[in-house]
Design a protein around this nucleic acid. Structure first.
Length: 630
RNA sequence: GCCGGUGUAGCUCAGUGGUAGAGCAACGCAUUCGUAAUGCGUGGGUCGAGGGUUCGAAUCCCUCCACCGGCUCCA
């Protein structure tokens, strides 16, 4: 019998299993004709077989998923009352959810780990068992595994697959590694609460997260990265570098200290400049409005639990959670012609939302934040051009801030579930096509998410990552078919009749707070020269050179650099250390030699001592620093 | 909001029933120094808040608040 392995035709025996053909110990599964299978698979004539190791992405998923099964077996042995929920592989590792009598403790994790080592040492085979649906249902019911029964009830196939190792069996599609001994190094990382099916009205479960690797080096490396990521945490760095503080005035409320405020101001200057260049008109709108406005917009109906409301006199008021209704009112302040479009209103608009207490997270999830918001009112024929411009603006700005990697998602509606989405079919089709066309035209990789659209329209979201690899939504482009309808937003067409305007919400940075948080983590607090709140520190070696240092300081501030002068009575090594810890890009050190020769000794962040140089050479260096503002 | 953890000086943390500690920072004095911490000294705390147990509570118990890791949410 002939099969193709790694592109080469091989002769194999009938009934032979993959495990004897692909016997290298690092091969854990295989892809046969594009489908993932266990190594117990018996190849058929003409199969195209690719071995899979841990180094494949699919291989990692299989490896982690198998580790999850081992963990579940250990938990069942230690806690026989535990009910199995689900235990998938995730981006980094795996988890398994259990319903248990009491939450897991740290000591429990140690015991579970010990039990897992026992299971691994036994090198139990992962055996695929295919059962008729009814039989499997009966079996799990007898075992009291109610969640598995619920899952089986939703499977429409006649046969379901389970995997068995030792006397542990779990409902599972597979594939798995051949035996438990293949799992070499693992670590249980944390526990947390969760809900069955992610539904907070259903059973509360306990989740254990873990990760595993094929070598100790890989595991140690991963744990090391986790530790290092903690040092990049924007909450820690923000305090250390005196950029901002969070939560002092109340949970989720941010104080921008002078240094953080400087960074923000520069970001805003850049933002304003780029927007004006592209035909946006800047507006300002109030922080509060009568409840009536939010009733018209529908926010009162759909967004109520997130809105902060209060009474002013007899009237109900709302602290604005969004800027859109205000921009619409500006648009509607007069009749608009098709010739006026597109109209693009932009605002750094501060909004307040009541976010549930458990979701707040540093600067990345707050209750008061400033969106770099804009609303584009245009004709249907202008949609594609506008989307294209927005994406290019987003890419341009991301690039200037040093973000080169991000994840793009296109969220469209579920065509089978039109009930959940407002607006006309043709509008949706047109908008979704426009978003998708632009992504394709600009050659941007994206993930299409069916059913993930907002109820009012499809959207493109760009996600940035924090130091721990968590994704946070930054730029977003959203169509809105709902608000123009509710507010009756129109323009007069060439045919002299009113037409519905197309409205696009968009944010490039997302929110100043969140953007600042990701920016700090991305640069590990070391802001690029143009953003650094302090760009240069001038430091003296002895008191005798203070006048010369002051002269340097004045010259630099006169050139609009942000400079600090350090004439303190400390050794130069101490001053160097302080400047390095504050992650300041340049340090100018002046001593007697510099004063006498009228030169400067320059130290650059990341490069160290550049030695003594002429003033002009230093100027040349500074001018060589990128500055998108000029 | 839910599950678990944590909360001591401006910051980082030690202190598990018997008089609140260290390092850094701040302040003072000495030192005037050449590229990642000069030395000595001084001040600084209702131990997150409230209640309880106890002769006595930072420490044990209860409630609340905040933060951390997740879950859920983020129209």
């Amino acid at each position: 019998m002939r099969v193709k392995i790694r592109g080469e035709v091989k002769e194999i025996k009938e009934g032979e299993r993959l495990i004897s053909i692909l016997s290298e110990p690092d091969i854990i599964a295989a892809r046969v004709n594009g489908k993932l299978v266990d190594l117990s698979y018996q190849p058929q004539e003409g199969d195209v077989i690719e071995p899979i190791t841990f180094d494949d992405d699919d291989g990692k998923q299989i490896y982690w998923h198998s580790t999850a099964h081992i963990m579940a077996q250990a938990v069942k042995e230690l806690f026989p009352n535990a009910k199995l929920a689900i235990g998938p592989a995730i981006e980094n590792g795996f988890y398994y959810d259990f319903e248990v009598d009491r939450p897991f403790t740290t000591e429990d994790l140690e015991k579970i780990e010990a039990k897992m080592y026992e299971i691994i040492a036994k090198d139990l085979t992962f055996e695929r068992v295919e059962l008729p649906r009814d039989e499997a249902r009966r079996m799990f019911e007898e075992m009291g595994e109610k969640f598995k029964v619920e899952l089986i009830d939703e499977i429409s196939d006649d046969v379901v697959s389970c995997y068995k190792q030792g006397d542990f069996i779990d409902l599972c599609k597979g594939p798995h590694v051949p035996s438990t001994g293949r799992i070499k190094y693992f670590k249980l990382l944390s526990t947390s609460g969760s809900y069955w099916r992610g539904d907070e009205t259903r059973e509360r479960l306990q989740r254990i997260y873990g990760i595993s690797f094929t070598s100790k080096e890989k595991l140690d490396h991963f744990l090391q990265l986790l530790k290092e990521a903690e040092a990049c945490d924007h909450r820690k760095l923000g305090t250390q570098l005196e950029y901002y503080s969070i939560g002092e005035p109340g949970p989720g409320l941010v104080l921008w200290h002078p240094k953080g405020a400087t960074i923000r101001r520069i970001i805003e200057e850049f933002w304003i400049k780029e927007h004006i260049k592209r035909g946006y008109q800047l507006v300002y709108t109030p922080h509060i409005a009568k409840a009536e406005l939010w009733q018209i917009s529908g926010h009162f109906e759909y967004y109520r639990e997130n809105m902060i409301t209060f009474k002013m006199g007899q009237e109900d008021y709302v602290l604005k959670p969004m800027n859109c209704p205000f921009h619409i009112l500006i648009y509607k302040s007069k009749i608009r012609s098709y010739r006026d479009l597109p109209i693009k209103y932009a605002e750094l608009g501060t909004v307040y939302r009541y976010e549930r207490s458990g979701v707040l997270h540093g600067l990345l999830r707050v209750r008061g934040f400033t969106q770099d918001d804009a609303h584009i009112f245009c004709r249907p024929d202008q949609v594609e051009t506008e989307i294209c411009e927005i994406i290019e603006l987003a890419r341009y700005m991301m690039e200037k801030f040093g973000f080169r990697e991000y994840d793009v998602t296109l969220s469209v509606r579920d065509p089978a579930d039109k009930e959940s989405f407002a607006g006309r079919d043709e509008d949706w089709q047109h908008a979704e096509a426009a978003l998708e066309n632009v992504l394709k035209k600009l050659n941007i990789p994206y993930k299409r998410m069916v059913g993930e659209a907002a109820f009012y329209g499809p959207k493109i979201d760009i996600h940035l990552r924090d130091a721990m690899g968590r994704k946070w939504q930054g730029p977003t482009i959203q169509f809105d078919f709902n608000l123009p309808e509710r507010f009756d937003v129109t323009y007069i067409g060439a045919d002299n009749t009113p037409h519905n305007v197309v409205m696009i919400h968009r944010a490039i940075l997302g929110a100043m707070e969140r953007f600042m948080g990701t920016l700090v983590e991305h640069h590990k607090g070391a802001m690029p020269f143009w953003l650094a709140p302090v760009q240069i520190v001038v430091a003296t070696i002895t008191d005798a050179v203070i006048p010369y240092a002051e002269e340097i300081y004045r010259r630099l501030t006169g050139l609009n650099y942000r400079v600090e002068l350090d004439t303190s009575n400390e050794k130069i090594s101490y001053k160097v250390r302080m400047v390095a810890e504050k992650k300041i890009p340049y340090m100018v050190i002046v001593g007697k030699k510099e004063m006498e020769s009228r030169r400067v000794a320059v130290r650059k962040r990341g490069e160290g001592d550049l030695g003594s140089m002429e003033w002009d050479a230093f100027m040349e260096l500074l001018r060589g620093e990128e500055n998108p503002l000029t």
